[in-house]
Amino acid sequence: MSKPIELTIDGRKVVAEEGETILKAAKKNGIYVPTLCYLEGVSSFGGCRLCMVEIKGSPRLFASCITPVAEGMEVLTDSERLRRYRKWAVELLLAERPHVCSVCVANGSCELQQLATELGVDHLRVDREWTDYEVDLTHERFAYDPNRCILCTRCIRVCDEVEGVHTLDLMLRGKNSKVVFDLDENWGFSQSCTSCGKCSAACPVGALYVKGKPLSEVKKKDLVSFIMERRSGK
């Protein structure tokens, strides 16, 4: 076993393993940190910034899902400042594509919506983009609506690291980025997709889903960590 590291999170002394992230240490100790792009069982890339924390001695905020613990570190997971930034992060995500929850398949089982509720987002302070991506219904079992995608790349990482296929990837840049199948093929015509459905289970919003099933049954955030645990023989 690696060297134990002592740090404090929200004033509580906790012990973590060397190389572990702040998020992991917090979770193990039952301390809640909001996350969105993070998915237990696959790699992290620190994209959404929901998991930001303060570390004493630095004016910067740190994405806890990619910041390793250090000896004597004093971490704050909740503050007025953090809530302000998290709220902005959620509002910007909601504004980037036309999220209309009242007509969305994910209404009621969506992580973005849940976070908006949690953070008290009662309106958007920025103008919204009304994208008009075509909804891809070509796959027999699955559907993909890019208009609700928040570019968290959870689907891409699951497809690559768990299913081992890498059907999915990102095309273009910035707000024009788009999750695509193969070389921007329609899902139903993808040569590499094994139709395993892991991407739909991992998608936090109503962008990837199983046709004709309530999303509450489809969304399985824990599926990936379950598979990975079984594989490691734990």
Partner: peptide, 17 residues
């Protein structure tokens, strides 16, 4: 309500050119 707050269903037409 959501239409007043953020456009909601009423604003869905914004996605059309």
């Amino acid at each position: 309500g959501d239409c007043a707050v953020n456009g909601n269903v009423t604003a869905l037409r914004n996605s059309l050119r």
